[in-house]
Design a binder for these strands. Sequence first.
DNA 1: ACCTGAACACCGTTCAAGT
DNA 2: ACCTGAACACCGTTCAAGT
Lengths: 222, 222
Amino acid sequence: MSPMPPAPSPRPARKRADRYHHGDLRRALLAEAVRTIQKDGVEGVTLRNIGARLGVSRAALYRHFTDKSALLAAVAAEGFRMLRSETDAAFRPAQTPEGFAAMAVAYVRFATEHPSHYRVMFGGYLDRKRRDPELESEGPAAFQVLVDAIVTLQKRGEIVADHPLHVARFVWATVHGVAMLAINGLLMCADEQAVIAVTRYAALRLGSGVGAHAAPAPARDQ
Amino acid sequence: MSPMPPAPSPRPARKRADRYHHGDLRRALLAEAVRTIQKDGVEGVTLRNIGARLGVSRAALYRHFTDKSALLAAVAAEGFRMLRSETDAAFRPAQTPEGFAAMAVAYVRFATEHPSHYRVMFGGYLDRKRRDPELESEGPAAFQVLVDAIVTLQKRGEIVADHPLHVARFVWATVHGVAMLAINGLLMCADEQAVIAVTRYAALRLGSGVGAHAAPAPARDQ
DNA sequence: ACCTGAACACCGTTCAAGT
DNA sequence: ACCTGAACACCGTTCAAGT
């Protein structure tokens, strides 16, 4: 039930106190990467830095990840799992327009509470050509939560009957825009509470934009 | 009238064929930086790369910019001037809700046609602490075009009477979200024409979201 | 099976020196 | 006034070698 599945190969914890530094260096590298981004930004993540902080050499990472960008991809994949879990938890109980607004708030809240993850997920640090399989399934899965919510509300006649994918892209763009501007400090908001206020206003206007009373899009805009 | 003001110190072109490589190395560095981002991304911009392409040493930049990030800040400032010019040109003629939609399309079109500039402007490459004066005036100036358009439409009763700054942040977040997702290839759009279609749908839904018929926000969401 | 240490080809920045 | 060349402290990655 936890959004974080166990490590792919759950080696048993090391049985005797050998000289190797970690029982699960892979997990430690991942956690240290997130910590470092929080402190120094993504550019602060260097193999030397995180290696030193964990007491291993700068080359130790290559036993657990193919390279540095695979480490970042793992951070992003973890982020997509968390994001999916939190947006789903916000909408699932009520499955109403109010739940939809709650999902929007949950989305932005995830970004502001986990800016390190969000920046790696959407900051352009990932090679889209790399085709990391974990990332290619987790990203669309997170988006699917939004599409599903829209389809559910459409069935109940509580949202405009445009193509669900179009509605989803529009709503996603808005919450993504608020999230990105917020964590880059461009929203001129004093604190996270102010960001939530902006998000709730955005959710309100999304509601009047895609609510059931809105006129369906003409064919050319479908 | 051009969005690009002349170089700060318009030295006359070099009079005799001396051994120094450029009459206006500053401008050449800026143009080469943009070209390089287009080809290899921001991480492809290295002083060695662009120096070599211009036939100067890697340290030559320091005669014209305080450091590398000042070069990127200049790219961003140029981008904000172009963005302001193009969004203003889209709204100013009609000053109607249709003109507002045209401004949204112009915004996204700028991002997709100048992804190098847009990425530097909003990709998190700029030190916000650096307080580049050119950037600190050009950025807000571009945002002001949006606020002004909203105030104009509110005066004519063609847009909801919420606080203009709140409406502006909401609209900005949406077009910024579309722009960012588009240039990062996350919108699953085949070509730029498809991106424009997504943008026109978003503009339509922004219209039904903030149109004059929309109920004003309750006080707590102001 | 997991990690190290040295080597390699990069990077931004500084600075004395050149013209 | 403008630029170079060498030096410095970094960076990711590879690979033979260690245990």
